[in-house]
């Protein structure tokens, strides 16, 4: 029982700090995009959409739902969430948005009405994308047929069902992008860091979350039970991968096919990630991910 009171105090305490930080620094500042909406390349954007795994959360494939017209339930410790309709439908999709609205969502986690999104939408990662990336993705989303219809309403756990709490949350845990290259690292390493922490959002499941749903400080990619529905997620730190005998070639091959060095085919949520995302990346990008993971 003391433990739970401890958690509560922690919650109030951190929430208080977050609120104070918010009052002092203000909420996240949306990035102003500097390029025009029609400068996006839909083919490049499609590749980014695969990398970002948009389909997995925004398309209810199992129920035969239309592409990007709303996703299956995503069970988290904070409630059950549904990826909304992101087809170009004017009323129920993103058809009446501007590129800036899209950038606000992707880089600052803000809806067009200025209210925050729950971080189950991994904007804390997507914020690393460049303006050009956003314009490309924007163009790709406009190749999708517009479909009318809304995903079911989120069923947020009553303790967290307060969107205003998300503004201090963002102040505490959001590091705005875009990605800044580390000049002391190779091009492949930088590309890998961008994918893993950015659009690929590997960190969303492989980095444990604290009681407030923020990334545990100093525990990047250490795994835990942060997979969909509480699925166990392995650590993918340099130490963990090396200890388990993974080489760069093993990582790249596993991302391409789903085969582990032991000869098992992954299955589980990562099986879905391989099928719907990493198997469609270029060999260079899979190598870049491996380069980064083995040299964090």
């Amino acid at each position: 029982m003391r433990r739970f009171i401890g958690y509560l105090i922690l919650l109030l305490f951190v929430g208080g700090i977050g609120l104070a930080a918010y009052l002092f620094f203000g909420g996240p500042e949306p990035r102003k995009v500097t390029i025009s909406a029609d400068s996006g390349d839909a083919v490049r954007g499609t590749y980014l959409a695969h990398m970002g795994g948009c389909v997995a959360c925004h398309t209810n494939s199992k129920q035969g739902g239309a592409l990007m017209a709303g996703g299956p339930p995503i069970k988290t410790p904070f409630g059950t969430f549904y990826g909304p309709n992101i087809t170009p439908d004017k009323r129920t999709g993103i058809g009446s948005w501007t590129l800036q609205d899209f950038a606000d969502a992707m880089t600052a986690g803000l809806r067009p009405d200025g209210r925050p999104y729950y971080p189950v939408f991994p904007y804390t990662s997507y914020t690393l994308m460049s303006d050009q990336d956003l314009a490309d993705l924007w163009a790709a989303l406009h190749t999708v047929p517009a479909v009318e219809g809304r995903a079911p309403a989120n069923k947020v756990d009553q303790l967290y069902d307060h969107r205003f709490l998300l503004i201090p949350w963002q102040t505490l845990f959001m590091k705005p992008g875009p990605y800044k290259e580390d000049p002391n690292r190779s091009e492949a390493w930088n590309r890998g860091a961008f994918i893993v922490n950015g659009p690929g959002h590997c960190v969303a499941c492989h980095t444990p979350r604290n009681i407030l749903g923020g990334p545990e400080e100093g525990e990047a990619l250490q795994g835990g039970s942060g997979g969909p529905g509480g699925e166990r997620v392995p650590a993918i730190t340099k130490e963990a991968l090396t200890k388990a005998g993974w080489t760069a070639g093993d990582i790249a091959y596993a991302l391409k096919t789903g085969l582990t060095p032991e000869g098992d085919a992954m299955g589980g949520s990562m099986g879905e990630v391989v099928t719907g995302s990493t198997s469609m990346l270029s060999d260079e990008d899979r190598q870049a991910i491996a380069t980064y993971l083995l040299d964090q």
């Binding site: 085919a265 992954m266 099986g271």
Partner: peptide
Amino acid sequence: VKTCNACHT
């Protein structure tokens, strides 16, 4: 392997 992975998933 993709067949194995899809089935396991």
